[in-house]
């Protein structure tokens, strides 16, 4: 079984570009209906299937995603 992971998204720095959403093989991410202070729909987790693969974080142009994976 794949390891379990989690992501932390700095939502105020997110620009809602959606590049991370399609990069996630587990369909963990989506854009929130709400907006941040800059008016961007920010990325949020929509399920707990994260494996900590880091795909989302390495394609994020603004480096706002931090990734954790169980040891």
């Amino acid at each position: 079984m794949a390891k379990r992971g989690d992501v932390v998204i700095d939502i105020e720095k997110c620009k809602g570009c959606e590049v991370c959403v399609s990069a996630c093989p587990q369909e963990v991410l989506a854009l929130a209906p709400e907006v941040n202070k800059k008016g961007y729909h920010y990325a949020v987790k929509v399920n707990s299937d994260c494996t900590g693969c880091t795909n989302c974080a390495i394609v994020c142009p603004d480096a706002v995603i931090t990734v954790y994976r169980e040891k």
């Binding site: 989690d6 932390v8 707990s48 900590g52 931090t66 169980e70």
Partner: peptide, 15 residues
Amino acid sequence: MSENLITPENLVYQK
């Protein structure tokens, strides 16, 4: 997923 995975030991990617 109740257990907290967000710990320094589990960190695999940060800016």
